[in-house]
Design a protein around this nucleic acid. Structure first.
Length: 824
RNA sequence: GCCGGGGUGGCGGAACUGGUAGACGCGCCGGACUCAAAAUCCGGUUGGGGCAACCCAGUGAGGGUUCGAUUCCCUCCCCCGGCACCA
């Protein structure tokens, strides 16, 4: 590696073997340095890394290396989220087993990760499809079940009548099964749920403490949880058969209610449908409708009246009852009081079916609003509402609550949009749900001593129903309770289960006795988590939930798993996400083979800030390569050993002094960019500028040469997190002591950052007209007279028309002139 | 449809707290080196006007606040992510 040509392949292999020899990425709890835990979201082992992975893991590795150089004991683990649908699809297509396919993909991807120079502690690797990992997930589930936090209930699924299998939303294309092409039907199946709603309030309030998270992610989670305080109101049926309970957040509009709308799945609808053919047909059609929220929202709002009236609790008026497609069974009570004048969906529905629209809210200070064309959804002042008239919306809600609560027909409740988490999947390649169904004892959890329930790996895999339902060895087991013959649960867990607690297991990766141990207290919470925005809601919410469950079971301390979060943007090509279907994928391996890992890493960090999408550009990659080559040449030219006396700024030439200022400005700026702003693109720009300044510099005298040596060394130190191999090699060539990877991070000399004199921008009426050179402590009056004395500036300024001087210290001066100066 | 993000030169992006719009890189143009090319180095590069010093316009569109707006507010357009069984 002592050649003069920059050869990434040799340099990178050399540097990687050096780090490996020194074991610098293997970190334990006894390390005297303060702990810092950097975690990147582990990949699904799809076969090969894609550019999104390269970007994600480069960001993580840069942060890890930066913290290590700042004196932290950095834990950076890696693993594989190895259960999931693609393995089953591949198994069907390639006639291989999901297990073999997955393991071979993992082997490939592990090599690719190492080739990129990421510093992982591989001893801690987690592969979620292995029993030593998922047994603890099974154990945790049985604990939740015992505490009433897991339960079984019927829920709707997409059913492919030809393949006799449940389909994921992704496998439903235009309402048809992805393989069979048969129209998908919806079916009700018993499924396992975890009671995340029991933690809704804490998941919401906990967001306030997550100051290290991007605000948009916190906002998305707030909206997802969707806390809404409101009123449950019972509407008495006029046929005397009890009442219908609705949920509303707008009790202030109750006098505007003109009908009730019930979800097609509502018990009252079902019961009525039993006696009414037309209604039964309608309900059946509705049950085949797509239940994705997006589909429900854009679908036609259709409905049908029930032969049923209810009594308005305040007016005594008889209101019709409808079933409507847009009412969700899973939210509130599955029934609403419709106020078409003040709700857009109710309005649309009322227009369609000719139901009355009765306005009861007006904007403050306005007259009765026009609501035939459009609903007025804002709050306001109540009118035409008996004793509520003149009250604000908030006051009216309170009054209605008092009235109705007093009569025992309503109660204040807080509802959440968040629903309990359905964790059952009717699939093979997942973690078996550790439950046994016994004819005598009912559903019995598998005791801890009998865990793990192993997923049989050598199975017949046809794609028609799950192999587990046909595997006698798996299926048949004695009941843990009574020992009579019983059957195992054949559903497996949602793969979000595995990714909800892996971050903690890395700390106790080899613990065989329990799910976790005391080592988690040393490392948790994760100091810095890095992953894609697409996980902003689901994964991150589930992981936060699991952390609270683990806390309440006594396994972890603290309320939140991830102290800081960086949501990285996607990698695009030609403006769209790289994907097989678009045919625009660039294989990272080809790029590494051609340019080396450092160039790939540098480009990824330079081309965009980490939280925005990144446009792939091969020419941009070449630019990155050009820069690293230039650095190689620049440092290589002065690769003689120098005894370096301490730097005395006073002994520098004028040019040297300028370079010295740039050096320290760069140290300060780059440190800020890495550690605070997390904008690596601007850090790289600053390093390129300093590199150019260094290459233009002609040392005049001994001290200038000392400075020059310092600049080159510092460039290597500051660039190391992003381009670790080439900088490690050049460090050795410069005769640097030890590994650059462990070198302390430099600190800017405050003396060098202070300026005595600079050019102050002068604006006239907000337009830049020039600059004037000012000293640090120069009084304002002096600056003013200097501006008026400057010929170039003075011609824009009529001294008699000056209205005021806006002086912004160190920034600029704005001279404000009267628009129309008085003329005699 | 709802929630979140984004829109700045030919392109990727910079401008951090309301204070010089276009840092840095790519591309392009010109020059140096070379028999020539590649590589490398140096200079220029928002648009329009002017010989020039300079002047005018300009950050998706329209309006507003301000001495001053890419940045704050309102209305609108377009693109991307999420919407609970893809991970």
């Amino acid at each position: 590696m002592n050649e003069n040509r920059y050869d990434p392949e040799t340099v990178e292999a050399w540097a990687q073997s050096r780090w490996l020899e020194e074991g610098i990425f293997e970190i334990d709890e006894g390390d005297p340095r303060p702990p810092y835990y950097v975690l990147s979201m582990f990949p699904y082992p799809s076969g090969r890394l894609h550019m999104g992975h390269v970007r994600n893991y480069t960001i993580g590795d840069v942060m890890a290396r930066y913290r290590r150089m700042n004196g932290f004991a950095v834990l950076q683990p890696m693993g594989f989220d190895a259960f999931g649908l693609p393995a089953e699809n591949a198994a069907i297509q390639n006639r291989t087993s999901p297990a073999r396919w997955t393991e071979s993909n993992i082997a490939t991807m592990r090599i690719q990760l190492n080739r990129l120079g990421f510093g992982y502690d591989w001893r801690r690797e987690i592969v979620t499809c292995r029993p030593d990992y998922y047994r603890w997930e099974q154990w945790l589930f049985t604990e939740l079940y015992r505490r009433g936090l897991a339960y079984r209930e019927k829920a709707w699924v997409n059913w492919d009548p030809v393949d006799q299998t449940v389909l994921a939303n992704e496998q439903v294309i235009d309402g048809r099964g992805w393989r069979s092409g048969a129209p998908v039907v919806r079916r009700e199946v018993a499924q396992w749920f975890i009671r995340i709603t029991a933690y809704a309030e804490e998941l919401l309030t906990g967001l306030e403490s997550l100051t290290g998270w991007p605000e948009e992610v916190r906002q998305m989670q707030r909206n997802w949880i969707g806390r809404s305080p409101g009123l449950e109101i019972d509407f008495e049926r006029m046929d005397g058969a009890g009442s219908i309970r609705v949920f509303t957040t707008r009790a202030d509009t109750i006098f505007g209610a003109t009908y009730l709308a019930l979800a097609p799945e509502h018990p009252v609808v079902r019961e009525t449908a039993g006696r009414d053919r037309a209604l039964a047909d309608f309900v059946r059609t509705m049950q085949q409708r797509e239940m994705r929220e997006a589909a429900v929202e854009v679908a036609d709002r259709r409905g049908m009246p029930l032969p049923l009236l209810v009594r308005h609790p305040l007016t005594g008026e008889a209101l019709p009852v409808w079933t409507a497609s847009f009412v969700l069974a899973s939210y509130g009570t599955g029934a609403i009081m419709a106020v078409p004048a003040h709700d857009a969906r109710d309005h649309e529905f009322a227009l369609r079916y000719g139901l009355p629209i009765r306005p009861v809210i007006r904007p403050p200070g306005a007259e009765r609003p026009e609501t035939q064309v459009r609903a007025l959804t804002e709050e306001g002042v109540v009118f035409a509402s008996g004793g509520l008239d003149g009250l604000t919306s908030a006051e009216a809600r309170e009054r209605v609550r008092e009235w109705l609560e007093g009569r025992g027909v309503a109660r204040a409740v807080v509802r959440y949009r968040l629903r309990d988490w359905g964790v059952s999947r009717q699939r093979y390649w997942g973690c078996p749900i550790p439950m046994v169904h016994c004819a005598v004892c009912g559903t019995v959890p598998v005791p801890a001593s009998a865990l793990p329930v192993r997923l049989p790996e050598d199975v017949e895999f046809s794609g028609v129903s799950s192999p587990l339902t046909r595997d006698a060895r798996f299926l048949n087991t004695p009941c843990p309770n009574c020992r009579r013959p019983a059957q195992r649960e054949t559903d497996t867990f949602d793969t979000f289960m595995e990714s909800s607690w892996y971050y903690a297991r890395y700390a106790a990766y080899d613990c065989r006795e329990a799910i976790l141990d005391e080592r988690v207290h040393h490392w948790l919470p994760v100091s810095q988590y890095v992953g894609g925005v697409e996980h902003a809601v689901l994964h991150l919410l589930y992981a936060r939930f699991f952390h609270k469950l683990l806390r309440d079971l006594g396994w972890v301390q603290g309320d939140e798993p991830f102290a800081r979060l960086l949501s990285q943007g996607m990698v695009l090509k030609d403006g769209v996400k790289m994907s097989k279907s678009k045919g625009n994928v660039v294989d990272p391996e080809a790029i590494i083979a051609r340019y080396g890992a450092d160039t790939a890493r540098f480009f990824m960090m330079f081309a965009a800030p980490p939280d925005q999408s990144l446009e792939w550009s091969e020419q941009g990659v070449e630019g990155a390569e050009r820069y690293l080559k230039r650095l190689w040449r620049l440092v290589g030219e002065s690769a003689e050993k120098r005894a370096a006396p301490p730097l005395d700024p006073a002994a520098l030439s004028a040019e040297g002094r300028r370079l010295w200022r740039s050096l320290h400005g760069t140290i300060a700026g780059v440190s800020h960019d890495y550690g605070v702003r997390e904008t690596f693109n601007t850090a790289m720009a600053k390093l390129m500028e300093l590199t150019h300044a260094a290459s233009r510099f002609e040392p005049a005298g001994r001290m200038d040469r000392v400075l020059y040596g310092q600049v080159l060394e510092t460039l290597l130190v500051l660039l190391h997190p992003v381009a670790p191999h080439v900088t490690e090699a050049l460090w050795t060539r410069l005769g640097g002591a030890g590994l650059l990877a462990l070198h302390p991070w430099p600190v800017a000399d405050p003396q060098a950052l202070e300026k005595e004199q600079w050019d102050l921008v002068v604006q006239v009426n907000g337009r830049r007209r020039g600059t004037v050179s000012v000293g640090r402590d120069e009084p304002e009056s002096e600056i003013r007279s200097r501006i008026l004395a400057d010929a170039g500036l003075a011609r824009h300024i009529d001294p008699d028309a000056v209205e005021r001087w806006v002086m912004v210290r160190g920034r600029l001066v704005n001279v404000v002139l009267r628009k129309d100066p008085a003329s005699p």
